[in-house]
């Protein structure tokens, strides 16, 4: 087992704007190849946190380390390891996609053929090779979003920060963006992904921090979060035969917390259905029950957020 290497560590980040405390003691770590999600509604403090992590915003308190090196707003060298994809589009509309990439590449001390080749690679990754030499003010919203991400990736950062990169994007482009992000962690990049879309956090993130009102309310894998708030999977079997016998058989499966019959089938509450489903089906069929369909309802982060904050994610 390889040791966990943290690319980003931030501790007790605090930031107030006047009397409004936007971030109140946020801290987390992200390891190499890990995608960490900050999930919370608008105004939760996600962008303020990212701004402090990238050194854009002076923090009132707290520490940020990139690969063990402290980061402040005045840091120069440390910033080479960070790629930022801001929530608002940050591209020059009068330049082409290639010119945008080349310009930002130069700011990261890239030059010559290395820069040209890398720009071509990124254009390929974000699917803009065919339109690389068109001015970006002629692009669709989705294309601009993809370029916005491409610029963040250009210099192969150790840590990529994506601040709600799919806001206002059509479903097709959104899917393309999510696929791109999935590949990043495979390449060993540490990714901090902020979103208020539960589906994105569940799909992309190895770990998620639930943030609300400037505080991380809970943190962990999806399963850990679900368990943390005492929620379990619900499994329904449409079945025939001796259903009561099937229910009795499930008593020997420790993950099954509760089981019963209902509407010509069986229903049960299970801790991690994904892991125990095969055992459950074996026990039930062993008791003579005939199964016609299986339906697993896993609790999602939306319900976790609701449990933790008393509010829906999109409130």
């Amino acid at each position: 087992m390889t040791a966990r290497v943290n690319v980003l560590e931030c501790r007790d980040l605090r930031k107030s704007f006047g009397d409004n405390a936007a971030v109140k003691g946020v801290g987390f770590e992200i390891a190499e190849g890990e995608t960490y999600g900050l999930l919370g509604p608008n105004g939760a403090g996600k962008t303020t946190t990212i701004s402090m992590v990238t050194g854009l915003l002076e923090r009132d308190a707290g520490e940020v380390f990139i690969d063990g090196e402290p980061l402040t707003t005045r840091s120069v060298a440390v910033k080479r390891g960070i790629g930022l994809v801001p929530q608002d589009l940050a591209i020059y509309p009068d330049l082409t996609a290639r010119e945008n990439l080349i310009f930002f590449g130069k700011l990261y001390d890239m030059a010559g053929n290395d820069l040209k080749n890398r720009a071509a690679e990124v254009l390929e990754v974000i699917g803009l090779t065919d339109r690389a030499d068109d001015r970006t003010d002629e692009y669709s919203g989705g294309m601009k979003r993809r370029l916005n991400i491409g610029i963040g990736l250009l210099h192969k950062p150790r840590l990529l920060l994506l601040d709600e990169p799919t806001v206002g994007v059509d479903p097709q482009s959104r899917n393309a963006i999510l696929e791109s992000v999935e590949h990043l962690s495979e390449e060993g990049m540490a990714v901090l992904y902020t979103t208020h879309y539960m589906e994105e956090a569940e799909r992309l993130c190895d770990r998620v921090g639930i943030i609300d009102l400037g505080e991380i309310k809970a943190e962990g894998t999806r399963r850990e979060l679900v368990q943390m708030v005492g929620q379990h999977d619900r499994v329904r079997l449409d079945a025939g035969g001796p259903l009561d016998a099937g229910v009795d058989a499930l008593a020997s499966v420790p993950a099954v917390k509760k089981a019963g019959t209902r509407d010509g089938g069986m229903e049960m509450v299970v801790d991690d259905a994904g892991q125990w489903l095969a055992d459950i089906l074996a026990k039930v069929t062993g008791a003579g029950v005939t199964i016609t369909s299986v339906d697993v309802d896993e609790p999602n982060l939306e319900s976790v957020f609701l449990h933790l904050t008393g509010r829906a994610l999109r409130d």
Partner: peptide, 9 residues
């Protein structure tokens, strides 16, 4: 924001 996030003063 991108300029300010870049490695320069």
């Amino acid at each position: 924001s991108r300029l300010m996030a870049a490695p320069m003063r």
